[in-house]
Amino acid sequence: MKELWELFITFAKMGVLTFGGGMAMLPILQREVVETKRWATEDEIVDYFAIGQCTPGIIAVNTATFVGQKRKGISGGIVATLGVVFPSLIIISILAGLINNFSDVAWVQNAFAGIQVCVCVLIFNAVLKLLKKSVVDKWTAAIFVLVLLGGVFLNISPVWFILVAAVLGILLKNLEVKRK
């Protein structure tokens, strides 16, 4: 019980300190989990992070589940994840309540109109960064362009694009192996 509580508190602390994407969590994770608590080695953390990035879901949650699982089995995985999301639940619920109350105020509307422009640029930058990692040859470039166009012009669930792309990936890779 004490160990589970320790997992919860440690990951809740990480939830508060992570500011931005899951990537921002890596240095804090290294300090807390590897150096202070010695729950995992440096190599293990890098592995968890790599897998956490390419499996479904939020990177921070995936990594927390990994570390918790290693420490205390299934219950450890669940408790570490609850810890990492706990601060978000509290902070966002309070903020969301406040913002909803002030959303009719003129300067709040103006501020958010400015912020929306910024969000456009931030999403654009995220796409640029991801492009470098995901588009590695002409096939992946073709998948990117087709999904981009499909996403803009077709009104179908993103789920289908993901499923079809996974199947395509397997087919393309196998063709490649056969040709060689």
Partner: peptide, 22 residues
């Protein structure tokens, strides 16, 4: 191999959101 196809698709979907938002 699955992830080889998944990654650009995931980026493409975010790109489509980006276009719509712009």
């Amino acid at each position: 191999a699955g992830f080889y196809g998944l990654r650009p698709a995931s980026t493409g979907l975010i790109g489509a959101s980006c276009v719509t938002v712009i």
